[in-house]
Simulated assay, not measured.
Amino acid sequence: MLGGAALLTWLGSWWMARLVGAAAASDDAGLPVPVVLALVDAALAAGLDVSSALARTADAADARSAGPLRALAAAHAYGGTAAELDGPLVRALARPLALAQAAGAPAGHGLRAAMVRLDRESRREAARSAGELGVRLALPLALCLLPAFALAGVLPLIVAVVAGADLGSLEVPELGAP
């Protein structure tokens, strides 16, 4: 019984660790886009032009964000557009920067609005993912850990109670006997 309980406990723990590990690995995407937008906004607020702000932010960002930032900086430096570039970071930056350039206004308000929207979306996605993970973790709990508890805790108790009760010595009175 204890060997089966130990095996089920190990299997349930291993299964749950794999589920949690897979959820954590899918979240490893480098700097979040709102953080990069905040860095670009800070560089613009410091007085840098758009292409310089993007290039300086690329110098400070991780490798995953630096490439799109440098490409977007080159496009702005040479008067090009970001139409040929793609990715969540480029999509988040392109619209506020293009609107600011077309209107001749500072890009800070558009970048801050994009930061708020993306932060809200990422929080919503994190809450949804956490809920899904909780549902997925119920399966190893129900199939492995609860049966292990029953084998190690409940079944020995039942065996002890049944073995301790002297069921053979009970006399059954006959019908009609006083």
Score class of each variant (00 low, 15 high):
Asp119Met: 09
Gly134Thr: 01
Leu37His: 11
Ala130Thr: 06
Ala71Asp: 10
Pro88Ala: 15
Ala23Lys: 05
Val90Glu: 09
Pro178Arg: 15
Ala114Met: 14
Leu54Cys: 02
Leu155Cys: 08
Leu146His: 05
His76Tyr: 12
Ser52Met: 15
Ala160Leu: 12
Val159Lys: 09
Asp27Met: 09
Ala60Ile: 02
Glu174Leu: 15
Tyr78Val: 12
Ala130Ser: 12
Ala55Pro: 01
Val116Trp: 09
Ala66Gln: 02
Trp10Asp: 02
Leu69Phe: 03
Arg112Leu: 14
Ala126Met: 02
Ala25Asn: 00
Gly67Thr: 14
Leu97Asp: 03
Ala126Tyr: 01
Ala126Gly: 05
Pro147Ser: 11
His109Ser: 14
Leu99Asn: 09
Asp28His: 10
Asp62His: 03
Gly108Lys: 01
Leu31Lys: 08
Asp166Ile: 00
Ser129Tyr: 00
Trp15Val: 04
Leu19Val: 02
Leu37Ala: 05
Ala75Arg: 09
Ala103Val: 02
Glu125Phe: 04
Leu7Lys: 00
Ala73Met: 12
Pro88Cys: 06
Gln101Trp: 04
Gly79Ala: 03
Arg120Thr: 14
Pro178Ile: 15
Gly87Asn: 00
Leu167Glu: 10
Leu48Gln: 08
Leu97His: 03
Ser26Ile: 04
Leu2Asn: 01
Gly47Leu: 05
Glu132Pro: 00
Glu171Met: 01
Val36Cys: 07
Ala66Cys: 01
Ala53Trp: 08
Ala127Ser: 11
Leu155Pro: 04
Glu174Ala: 15
Arg136Ser: 06
Ser129Gln: 14
Val35Gln: 12
Ala22Cys: 03
Leu48Cys: 03
Gly134Val: 07
Ala148Ile: 10
Ala75Ser: 11
Glu171Ala: 13
Leu69Pro: 00
Gly87Tyr: 02
